[in-house]
Amino acid sequence: MEVSMTVNGRAVSADVEPRTLLVHFLRENLRLTGTHVGCETGYCGACTVHVDGKAVKSCTMLAVQAEGADVKTIESLASNGNLHPVQEGFWERHGLQCGFCTPGMIMASVALLDENNNPSEDEIRHGIEGNLCRCTGYHNIVRAVEYAGAKMRGEEPPPPDWEGGE
């Protein structure tokens, strides 16, 4: 089947098997391998991308369902060599270890902050509970999102909590 969509601002089209998952289309046809597959059941969130501005788990969607859609992946987030505040937050606050859940976690966090750039810790935790991380215990992911929120509000982020104990 022929499928056409916009991915990271570029028009793309391809002939795919109807059963091709969006995540496989992104990874294997377009070679955008930053979007990861962790569970194929929509539970872990490693495959999170934005479809028409909403965070979507791309392993739960067929490529053909994204016909005509505007898709954004982790590769589109930094612009002109400048990291997105969420990417910067993950780096500054050690919000990642193995990095495998990270692209999905960042895309989910961006969607969260796009809706509310001043979330409470509880709102952050519930906002990303659809994305699993096995390395960080989420502690520093929450700090990373707090950092990014502050940056997006034009405020100074809180200092890291590993300095001088917590």
Binding site: L32, T33, G34, T35, T73, I74, E75, L77, A78, L83, Q87, F90, W91, E92, H94, L96, G99, T102, P103, I106, P160, W162, E163
Partner: peptide, 16 residues
């Protein structure tokens, strides 16, 4: 607490 050298690639989806 040096920032990790691993991270720039990983946060941009460019780790292999």
């Amino acid at each position: 607490s040096v920032r990790r050298r691993e991270d720039p690639a990983l946060i941009q989806g460019m780790g292999t």
